[in-house]
């Protein structure tokens, strides 16, 4: 066992890990931040996406020790401390961008990374960016709509479902 330290959602956190401990396991099991979901554990679904030093990564495909000293952002840090949803989360709610909600933490974190890189993405750019985030419920349409809305764009341009 070795100790790792990282800043998670702005707070210093530390814990003991093995070499093989994944970042997703450290966040969920050691820190109790179970908002980061593990859907596939095979790098396909993107439910486990978090930010490490500002970049979206699949936390099931990164060792906790690789994140030693890093700044990590998870879904738990997205809403304000009083629970007020951030713009992206609110847009997902307003536009029914989720049904069961299992993919949503990863969708929101990927969206946050996308909008940082590209504040006004087109529909095609949104769909392309979300290639690694799978949703079994929504058919993606309302997720795309929510992201257009979150980036301050007109959603009526998107064909009615």
């Amino acid at each position: 066992m070795s100790q790792v330290k990282m800043t998670v959602n702005g707070k210093e956190m530390s814990g003991d890990v093995e070499g093989r401990t994944l970042l997703s396991q450290f966040l969920r099991d050691t820190l109790g931040l179970t908002g980061t979901h593990v859907g596939c554990d095979t790098s396909q679904c993107g439910a486990c996406v978090v930010h490490v030093d500002g970049q979206a990564v699949k936390s099931c495909a990164m060792l906790a020790m690789e994140a030693d000293g890093a700044e990590v952002a998870t879904i738990e840090g997205q809403a304000a401390p009083d629970g007020t949803l951030n713009t992206i989360q609110q847009a997902f709610q307003d536009h029914h961008g989720l049904q069961c909600g299992f993919c949503t933490p990863g969708m929101v974190m990927s969206t946050a990374a996308l909008l940082k890189e590209n504040p006004k993405p087109s529909e095609a750019e949104i769909r392309d960016y979300l290639e690694g985030n799978l949703c079994r419920c929504t058919g993606y349409h309302n997720i795309v709509k929510a992201i257009l809305a979150a980036s301050g764009q007109d959603v009526s341009a998107l064909a009615a479902e």
Partner: peptide, 9 residues
């Protein structure tokens, strides 16, 4: 290659 998260690592 892959998706943004794969490309980041």
């Amino acid at each position: 290659i892959g998706d943004p998260a794969v490309r980041a690592r």
